[in-house]
Computed example of a mutant assay.
Amino acid sequence: MLRISLQQAAMESPHTFAQQVVSNADHWTLEFTWPRMSHGDAEITQAWIDSLRGQLGTFLYQPRLAYGSDLTGRTLALPAYSYGSLVTMGGWAANAASSLYLGQYCQIGTRLHRVVSAPANANTSGQCTVELAPQIRSLQPAGTPINFQTPKGTFRLVSGDSVAYTLDVDRQPSFPSIQAKEAL
């Protein structure tokens, strides 16, 4: 399960009950359970987990895509600023269909993002202003490529404790669920 964790706080006035919400940051968290596997595959998986050395190592995760994307040649038309969620993408013909859909994944730099708002068509300059989650973490200059076909993010394990497989009742290898978060 891939989801976004938010760093937020809400304060309420004891007199007027007016609320103020502050959002400081957000990042991806990941939890997955291994499918049933052979003993040989379990040994290979165990070696990969051990190679991470707990929280020291990182790995690339590519989410399963419900729909394939044929978008190529898209770049940032304007710089994308830290802690902003709106980006201006370029590479479309004037007024062309954007082919963007809600929930679509993309990669900008080394960071994985999800489209949460997008126009149906590009503007007359061949650009689309798109809202992404999580927020942009560091300045990305204009011209940065946007990967819609094979987007991935960098993650690290949440715990430094060793994870090992056990044998289930059928004497088949079984791993516990593994938790990771985006490596920033």
Rank of each mutant, 00 (worst) to 15 (best):
Q7D: 15
L139S: 07
R3C: 00
D70T: 15
E182A: 04
V158S: 13
A25I: 01
L78N: 12
P35D: 09
D161H: 08
I4Q: 06
P151Q: 04
P145S: 06
V21A: 04
G109C: 04
W28K: 05
T16V: 06
T75H: 12
Q46P: 05
L139K: 14
T33A: 13
G73Q: 14
A42Y: 04
S82W: 00
T75A: 02
Y83Q: 13
V169I: 13
L60H: 14
Q20C: 02
P134R: 10
S38G: 12
Q135N: 11
A18Y: 06
L60N: 15
G54Y: 03
T16W: 05
L60Y: 14
P173K: 01
V169F: 08
A142C: 01
F17P: 00
D70V: 07
Q107F: 01
L132Y: 04
V21G: 00
D161M: 07
K152F: 10
G84S: 12
N147W: 02
Y61S: 02
Q19M: 11
A80L: 05
Q46I: 03
S23N: 11
L6T: 13
G160E: 13
A77F: 01
H27T: 10
G57F: 05
L2A: 06
E31G: 03
P35V: 01
E12G: 00
S125V: 00
L132T: 09
L167M: 11
D26A: 09
R36Q: 14
E43T: 09
G68D: 11
P119D: 12
T154N: 10
E131K: 15
Y101G: 07
V87T: 10
D161V: 02
L112E: 04
E31D: 09
H39T: 06
R137F: 09
G57D: 05
S162T: 14
Q127I: 01
G68F: 01
P79I: 02
N121P: 00
L157Y: 03
